[in-house]
Nucleic acid binder design. Structure first.
Length: 260
DNA sequence: ATGTCGATACTTTATCGA
């Protein structure tokens, strides 16, 4: 079972790019972020024609997540617990049945948090605390689950080209990295780092300043696995090729293979 | 650390968010 995550930066602008990638890569489940549209504007039919079931949690203009799955959804639950007043569409949890039982997929678009002296940074940290609480609740079920998405977190200095330039950024501040580490300390596995120890492998390159050409990137898109999922992890990688295509997203897909 | 991009609106250029 192949599961991918990809921040596509606008489904209207990236529909055909995503279809092309799905046509050649054919993952079983894809978590996409930043669809930037309302539920009813999502082009579900195009993906259904490729054999995917579609779950959408969108909003106008910003944010928004959608999960595509070749397996039917047993459950679809939008929103992250912990703040009823939070209107931002950033979290979509689904459950599918697999031969060995169930598999839960949390699709998340974690807040960017910049600028750090605005209300956006405390919102990011609070959102990360809510995600930890959700992870704890799910871990108690002792079932396989994947938390996949754009975390907007650079976990380690080796995950960015020039770490010294990022020390005060919301994606790399010590407080941000500490909140991410709490997820790992609960018992979740960073799938990419379980499979790779080479430094400077990136999932995002800014549109500006020739970042892609200079390989000036960030590793901020992650798949975190529960112990019951990590036990079945056989491969993980970043597919950077779509960053070189026409009109690319600034992020590329990251995928795992689970033997379930 | 800014050489860009996507979506939106009292649009055809400015603003916001990343």
């Amino acid at each position: 079972m192949k599961i991918a995550t990809w921040n596509i930066n606008g489904i209207k602008a990236r529909r055909d790019t995503l279809l092309t990638w799905l046509g050649q890569d054919a993952p079983d489940i894809v978590c996409i972020q930043e669809i930037k549209c309302m539920d009813e504007a999502f082009p579900s039919e195009a993906f259904e024609d490729l054999g995917y079931n579609v779950a959408v949690h969108g909003q106008k203009s910003f944010n928004g997540v959608a999960t595509l799955s070749k397996l039917p959804f047993d459950e679809v639950t939008p929103r992250l617990d912990g703040d009823e007043a939070d209107e931002q569409a950033r979290y979509l949890e689904t459950v599918v049945s697999v031969p060995s039982g169930v598999l839960r997929i949390a699709n998340l678009y974690l807040p960017n948090g910049n600028p750090v002296d605005s209300e956006k940074y405390p919102y990011k940290l609070a959102w990360m605390a809510r995600l930890q609480a959700r992870a704890e609740a799910l871990l108690a079920l002792e079932e396989p689950f994947v938390m996949a998405g754009d975390y907007n977190v650079i976990p380690m200095p080796d995950d960015v080209h020039n770490p010294a330039a990022w020390t005060d950024d919301a994606l790399f501040k010590p407080e941000t990295r500490a909140e991410f580490r709490k997820l790992l300390n609960l018992g979740l596995t960073d799938a990419f780092r379980a499979c790779h120890d080479e430094p400077h492998r990136y999932s995002f390159w800014d549109y500006q300043a020739g970042a892609w050409q200079k390989n000036n990137g960030l590793r901020i898109d992650h798949l975190l696995l529960s112990p019951q999922a990590a036990d079945h992890l056989v491969a993980c990688d970043i597919d950077s090729t779509p960053r070189g295509w026409e009109k690319p997203s600034d992020h590329v897909p990251v995928w795992i293979e689970l033997k379930l």
